[in-house]
Design a protein around this nucleic acid. Structure first.
Lengths: 135, 135
DNA sequence: TAAGTGTATTATATTATTTAATACACTTAA
DNA sequence: TTAAGTGTATTAAATAATATAATACACTTA
């Protein structure tokens, strides 16, 4: 439940999901939202592992997926850096959003709800949500 | 990848998720969409296990969650039946939809996307989707 | 050369998932 | 009463995913 700041990154780890997935999701989000800048140096695998009190192998697993996403670049002996390409970030955002949206619409469909139903519901319950983004 | 009909229920099981979760999701959907009628008898635990070639304990686990959902009722010695209450189904549908929607909006927010962004995207890519519902 | 990078390997522990083999209480129909 | 069919509970075992631990190697920089 506790938040943890490591360089430009903020982490909040619990036991509801695999640790490497939580790191992955939260770094992805930080890059997508520009909370960590393009080209900026990431914490080293060992440093982040120590800060989050987990095994370097676990952090490594998340870092390797980030590189497959095209969101980071490794420089041998130097470290891991956020990509300098805004286009890459945009492509990633679009692709992942499409994947999430497809899955969501499938869920709604499985409950017999149409897109019109969903839109009406969200308009009613999530538009005046002034305290919605507690990060 | 293959579909399987058991009474009024249609199943499609793969290895992407735990088996008991797939049974749960697919029965929930069938009830929510009215594919199996209110008050109708479900396949017995042993029968469904045999049809789907899995262990009765695995089917049991899904059936117990269905009862917690309020979607089924057990009668000792007789079997498991879909609830006769349309209100219960409606409450379930609303509650689960709200849960799915909250999670979805959190995903979009983690990518820096607003509800307006999402709406525009879906209008463009999912409205003229005439071949969308392959079930 | 020394310290800091990412990476790879091997081993072990833990947990979730699934199967297997029974057993019990209850209901219904022969 | 009996037999078959319900849901349910228990114990054991196998498998896979997750995570930790302890090293080791190649590369870069100061």
């Amino acid at each position: 439940m506790e938040k943890q700041q490591v360089g430009s990154l903020r982490f909040q780890i619990d036991f509801s999901q695999p640790l490497h997935e939580q790191i992955l999701d939260q770094v992805r989000s930080a890059i997508a939202k520009g909370e960590i800048g393009l080209g900026e140096k990431m914490p080293s695998v060992r440093e982040l592992a120590q800060e989050l009190r987990m095994n370097p192998n676990t952090v490594m697993r998340a870092y390797q997926e980030l590189e497959r996403d095209g969101l980071t670049e490794k420089r041998r002996g130097q470290g891991t850096f956020v990509t300098s390409s805004p286009e890459r970030v945009q492509v990633f955002r679009t692709d992942l959003a499409a994947k999430y949206i497809d899955a969501f619409l499938a869920q709604m469909s499985s409950l017999g709800l149409t897109w019109t139903d969903v839109k009406a519901y969200i308009q009613q319950n999530h538009t005046s949500d002034k305290g919605g983004d507690r990060s």
